[in-house]
Amino acid sequence: MDIKGASVIVTGAASGLGNATARSFAEKGAVVFGLDLQQSIDKAVEQGIDEGITLIAADVTSEDDVKAAIARATEAAPLRVVVNCAGIAPAARIVSKKGVHALDLFETCISVNLVGTFNVLRLAAEAMSTQDTVDEDGQRGVIINTASVAAYEGQVGQIAYAASKGGVYSMGICAARDLAQFGIRVNTIAPGTIETPMLKGLTEEFQKSLEAAIPFPSRLGRPSDYAQLANAIVEHDYLNGESFRMDGALRMAPR
């Protein structure tokens, strides 16, 4: 699929994976709309990392927010690509010295990571389904969701995160089958240990220990690695209903 001149929506676009992905699509000539919370957008503007992207304040769990963002994107150009990167990663054990896992924490994680992803997916698919096709196969658009290796090997303290990302992974093939009749492809990326601002704040010794657990290349993943894979999925028209681990052959230990 050629995205030059087409609209692209990326959630969680004010930082990390989402920002790298949004910028990479903009560099290829797409009209990119990045969804994120207002406080995250304010930081992105302060840091000057919003260049080439139209950032829109939106909560992915809000039907009204997402509908408004999609309407804005489709007014600019046909919506051809949506990448769901928005997410949170709370850490808590089911039972610990602090007590039992808070139910509201679990619910919030499921709401943002799983329900939010589905909310964007369903509304984007609705918009894409009415657009003209772009090729002889009848393709109309591509949706990429973000799971995690935690969907396969959740570690100690990742019960909420693993459950949410397991749900995202499980949605993939069903969504691809549901939307095949409209010419919409759905794929999932499951990143491993990624270099984020939070990890950069840890000691060099701890970062080295994380890198040592990754077979090859023995380094943390980069947001640019994710962006490169997202672009490859969009460009390769026969990739559909698949989940791609992007982890350097990492298999997470219990802790």
Rank of each mutant, 00 (worst) to 15 (best):
M1G: 12
A6G: 00
A6S: 12
V8Q: 01
T11K: 09
A13I: 13
G16Y: 04
G16R: 02
L17S: 11
L17W: 04
L17M: 15
S24W: 00
K28A: 13
G29E: 02
V31I: 15
V31P: 00
G34N: 08
L35P: 10
D36R: 06
D36H: 10
Q38G: 00
Q39H: 13
Q39P: 06
D42S: 08
E46H: 01
E46M: 03
G48S: 10
D50I: 08
E51M: 08
A57R: 10
A58T: 08
D59G: 11
S62K: 10
D65E: 05
V66I: 14
I70A: 07
I70H: 02
I70R: 07
R72D: 05
R72M: 13
A76N: 09
A76L: 03
V81P: 04
N84C: 13
I88R: 06
A89F: 14
A92H: 09
I94C: 04
G99V: 12
H101Q: 12
L103C: 01
L105A: 07
E107P: 09
E107K: 15
E107G: 00
C109Y: 02
C109M: 04
I110F: 05
S111T: 07
V112I: 15
N113A: 09
N113Q: 06
N113H: 10
L114V: 02
F118Q: 12
V120K: 03
A124M: 04
A124E: 03
A124R: 05
S129H: 07
T133C: 06
V134P: 00
D135G: 12
E136G: 08
R140D: 03
V142P: 00
I144L: 08
N145G: 09
S148F: 02
Y152C: 00
Y152V: 04
A162T: 00
A163E: 01
K165I: 03
K165R: 12
G167M: 08
Y169F: 10
M171W: 01
G172T: 15
C174L: 06
A175H: 03
A176M: 08
A176L: 11
R177H: 07
D178Y: 10
L179C: 02
A180I: 11
Q181D: 06
F182G: 01
I184Y: 04
R185G: 05
V186F: 02
N187M: 05
N187S: 13
N187I: 01
I189E: 01
I189C: 03
A190E: 06
I194F: 08
P197K: 09
P197N: 09
P197E: 09
L202N: 10
T203Q: 12
E204V: 15
Q207N: 09
Q207F: 13
K208F: 00
A212Y: 07
P215G: 12
G221L: 11
G221E: 03
P223R: 09
P223Y: 11
P223E: 08
P223S: 11
S224G: 01
S224F: 09
D225A: 12
A227K: 03
A227S: 12
Q228K: 14
E242N: 14
F244D: 01
R245V: 08
M246V: 15
A249W: 13
A249I: 05
L250T: 00
L250Y: 09
R251T: 12
A253V: 03
P254Q: 08
R255H: 11
